[in-house]
Nucleic acid binder design. Structure first.
Lengths: 243, 243
DNA sequence: GTCTATAGTCAGATAGAC
DNA sequence: GTCTATCTGACTATAGAC
């Protein structure tokens, strides 16, 4: 074990530098502009060296993506403590949108470009309603289910369908904004609130209990250390060339 | 003029064949797989020949995109005749989603990949509320404004914000589905209806502010003919390479 | 571990012969 | 109008010297 440990530790520094450089390029120029050459140039190594630490460009991309997704979940984590499901949901929605705006390239990769990872993000959706899964979708679905139980959704409502539609709304807001910066003429926060009001009737008369609209601190300080938990399955997909 | 006409007509056949081939490739393999060489191979010409009819690959892509957008507007056209704004809006929403599902590659290009065209699609959004603009967003915004006038939206609602949020929902549904075919576990039509019901209260009980003015359908003058205006400024953007 | 050198592909676009 | 031939440049990934 000691030997293995030491070996791994020797490798880490360069691996980190590769990821750092890759993150910089991606953040600045987008994922399409990421190439092994550019990374190598950025850290002052030859392209071939990168292959000692990553099997392929794709593996680097996946590592960055996993990082971004972990960040999103970290942002969600403190919200789980909010007892009122409506308030929690509001916080989740705002945090989701804020994340997309603040980390456009990560968001693009996770939800707009890389199908495998989009699939992964959706994986838990199905049973998430009663499961306390820690996926983005699971958290939203769970809050909605609780709200239905609390009678804040129409009895006829299908909580799972609402969760899907609500997520679509959030994704649509972020995705359209990332495609065209002028998109929401309405301020983003206002737009999210508009959507929430439309869905849950805050603008409508509060039938039973009027939530006093306790302001959710939507700025989660995020003491997040960029987690480097890289993707586990190598899943070397050697690019099926089509003749 | 006669000479110009004749020249243009001589060019058209091959131009069409180029576009046909390009459309096929794009529909089958996606936009990323579209290359001048593949088009040339498909129609049995040399790559260089394509440049007699198009300045660049980008111009071909734009032509396909304009085509797709015109198709979307054509699908919308007959819906303008629906007098009841709520019914019209429902039709618009379903049509929008259906188009995205049926023409995934066109949708991707217009709204998910090509920023210039996404920008163009959004261009009319601003004044569209009182304008009978023939953009996709304009049609939705106009219907919503009419619904508000008819009292079917909360008086406090900002019709423009609702329009943006509703569009985001539709886009989110389509975009997520295109990224992951398993996305809406709920059937697509059901999901759209769920959103519409939640937003406009068909499912809610008409407690106090009932849609009393059920028949207050504002008629719509806008007879928008399926405009074929392909609207393209060549805008040759020769790909700014970044050194 | 790291490098140089290179293989092998693909791409967009152009020159100039026919 | 159309072709062949080529320029230019991007990329991933590998082999083998140091």
């Amino acid at each position: 074990m000691g030997t293995t440990e030491r070996k791994r530790r020797q490798k880490q520094p360069l691996r980190e530098r590769i990821l750092d450089a890759a993150r910089l390029i991606v953040t600045r120029d987008g994922f399409a502009a990421l190439s092994m050459r550019k990374i190598a140039d950025a850290i002052g190594y030859a392209p071939a060296t990168l292959y000692l630490h990553f099997d392929s460009r794709d593996q680097i991309v996946r590592a960055l993506c996993a990082e971004g997704y972990a960040q999103l979940l970290e942002r969600f984590a403190p919200l789980a403590a909010i007892a009122d499901p409506a308030e929690r949901l509001k916080g989740l929605c705002r945090t989701y949108v804020a994340f997309g705006i603040e980390h456009p390239q990560s968001y693009r990769l996770i939800f707009m470009e890389d199908q495998p990872h989009t699939d992964a993000a959706f994986a838990g959706t199905a049973q998430a309603v009663d499961d306390s899964s820690d996926t983005a979708s699971g958290l939203i679905a769970r809050s909605l289910a609780q709200m239905k139980t609390a009678g804040r959704l129409p009895a006829s409502a299908d909580a799972a369908a609402w969760a899907e539609a609500l997520w679509a709304t959030l994704h649509g807001i972020v995705a359209l904004h990332l495609m065209d910066a002028t998109f929401p003429r309405t301020p983003l926060d206002t737009l999210v609130d508009t959507a929430l009001d439309a869905w849950f009737g805050s603008a409508r008369e509060p039938t039973s209990a009027a939530p006093s609209a306790a302001g959710v601190a939507l700025d989660v300080p995020a003491a997040l250390a960029p987690k480097r938990r890289s993707a586990k399955r190598p899943t070397a997909k050697p690019k099926a060339a089509q003749p």
